[in-house]
Design a protein around this nucleic acid. Structure first.
Lengths: 150, 150
DNA sequence: ATCAGTTAGATTGTATACAATTTAATTTAG
DNA sequence: CTAAATTAAATTGTATACAATCTAACTGAT
């Protein structure tokens, strides 16, 4: 496990690569399901937060989704265009934009209800392995939160 | 674990989301290291395959990296522009494009030698947990390979 | 109260990703 | 052998991502 072990630069010895590839491939497999409700994957996880929170600022949404305004601003404008959300400035702090789910957006949730099950079928893990993976990923994500301020 | 359990649509109950977020955040943490050698993450994993294989067709490269020509063609043209690779049609089959690492591209490998170690520090996992994660991710990826032809 | 510093979003520019289509080369079926 | 089918890249169009910058709104220290 040397710091300069040249084998560390082999693709098969990387941890990040299977993570990257897996995430990408699973998101790709969402597409046929998401096409039916006219959402992309990023739009879908955004709606997921809104189905739960009803309304949320762009900043809080970005923290939940690990996305910044450069990604969210155009995406939220698209969701607004589809009529699934509204965007309005906060009365208390005009800098903040509050995103809220519309009735149409809410109705989408029932159409999405079978998606997690459909995706589950394409991930070839036993239930207890899925829990293991979930735990490990969240451990990494929590590690990021405790990172030193840059 | 009902097929229509509404809680399945909560972000925190998703397996794909932490996968997506983790991959994205780790790639983002590569940036300062990769900036030094003027590569993006996708260019880096491409070079990693080339450091190992010396030369490879675009098709085989795409299979290794789970990327298609729509992503690879412009990326490979950039790597060619930087002088790290060459691109030439195969003599045996003019449809195939063979990508080869140049001497300059090869020299890059030693500059990259400390990157895996640097990234390792920002992933807060014990060595045995990293192995566990590696195993689970490869199990999912292998599951994809055995998928029915569409 | 004022202005320097901070904060929230929006914007700009670059680089992926990928579906769908196109083009050229190769293979195969009749 | 030749037309049809297949294959490998390239191209086109849409949608992320994210760093860097910008703008407007708020905060805080004096």
């Amino acid at each position: 496990m040397n710091e300069k072990d040249p084998d560390q630069l082999k693709l098969e010895n990387q941890l990040c690569f299977p993570l990257y590839a897996c995430a990408k491939e699973i998101v790709r497999r969402y597409k046929p399901y998401l096409d039916r409700i006219d959402l992309t994957y990023t739009q879908y996880i955004t709606m997921m937060v809104l189905w739960e929170e009803r309304n949320i600022t762009v900043k809080a949404l970005g923290e939940r989704l690990y996305l910044d305004s450069g990604t969210l601003t155009p995406l939220l404008k698209k969701l607004e265009g589809k009529g699934y959300i509204t965007r309005e400035r906060s009365k208390e702090d005009e800098r903040s934009l509050i995103v809220s789910v519309t009735e149409t957006g809410d109705e989408l949730k029932s159409s999405a209800a079978d998606i997690p099950f459909g995706i589950g079928k394409c991930v070839a893990l036993e239930p207890q392995e899925a829990v293991q993976l979930y735990t490990l990923l969240h451990k990494i994500l929590n590690g990021f939160e405790n990172e030193p301020e840059k």
